[in-house]
């Protein structure tokens, strides 16, 4: 069974985020890393391929400037190969344009199962994976907290408001995984060395047969007209506990008439 994992390479979330003052796009400078949310998908894919008795895991990413460091991390974890789509024409792409690019790359990978995170850490629009599924004509199961593959179908425990649902779906299919679906491994030294010689295919939008006018800023059909700081909450009273701070809490609950 071949598994494709869509992964995002993002600026280190520990560094404060910024918007370009003119284009209002997220500024992505400096080295990008594998989105932590995607390490679960990579790990899940490796475990599923292994449980199925073979097959390849391909990681797929769209990123500016030929960025590969996040993909190398996934290769070091054990993925067999990587596809990077990098093209100046993609700058400013909205989620749907991103989905078109990823869908075209997934099609090339010939995967039976496509995995992605429920949402990225930096953008968290949270719609791209399902858009990919629709563009590929695949069924999808989102918010998986457990995934198993049984021959030609996938079985998922899907989070719900009340708990979870057991969902089955024939392959090929797309599944989005939540953090905690599996414990991601750390790349070993051997893995890191091996990753250096694993195949990494770099493609442009033209290679994928996509019209450059459909993606990037040229194809975006939504504009950000303003960005402002959210209304800040006035910070309140701070009490350092000296053994009786609970009394102040009781007093406040009393005032608010909740007790």
């Amino acid at each position: 069974m071949n598994v494709a994992v869509c992964v995002k390479q993002i600026p280190d979330p520990a560094a404060p985020p910024a918007l370009d003052p003119v284009t209002k796009n997220l500024v992505r400078t400096g080295k990008l890393i594998l989105d932590d949310s995607d390490s679960y998908g990579v790990e899940m894919a490796l475990q599923l391929a292994e449980a199925a008795g073979g097959g390849e895991v391909t990681v797929i990413s769209m990123a500016p400037g030929g960025e590969t460091s996040g993909l190398r991390t996934a290769l070091a974890m054990g993925a067999a190969k990587a596809i990077l789509v990098s093209d100046d024409a993609l700058a400013g792409s909205d989620a749907l344009a991103t989905a078109k690019v990823l869908a075209a790359a997934v099609r090339r990978s010939g995967a039976d199962l496509v995995l992605a995170a429920t949402e990225s850490t930096d953008g968290y629009t949270g719609t791209t994976p399902v858009q990919v599924a629709e563009l590929l004509g695949l069924p999808s199961v989102t918010f998986a907290k457990k995934v198993t593959v049984d021959g030609s179908s996938v079985r998922v425990e899907r989070q719900t408001e009340a708990g979870y649902d057991e969902v089955t779906c024939p392959l090929p299919a797309l599944v989005t995984v939540t953090a905690g679906v599996v414990e991601p491994r750390y790349p070993s030294f051997k893995g890191i060395m091996a990753a250096k010689s694993k195949p990494l295919e770099q493609l442009t939008v033209a290679d994928l047969g996509i019209d450059a006018g459909e993606v990037g800023a040229a194809g975006a059909r939504q504009v950000v007209v303003d960005v402002a700081a959210a209304e800040a909450r006035a910070s309140g009273e701070i009490v350092v506990d000296e053994g009786d701070a609970h009394e102040r809490i009781v007093q406040m609950l009393d005032q608010l008439k909740v007790i």
Partner: peptide, 23 residues
């Protein structure tokens, strides 16, 4: 913005070829 709501939004966006604004 619920689990099912997000599924519907993503599929609808791709079917209609229209972007979707979230959050």
């Amino acid at each position: 913005a619920t689990y099912d709501g997000r599924d519907i939004a993503g599929r609808l966006s791709a079917r209609l070829d229209r972007p979707v604004i979230t959050n």
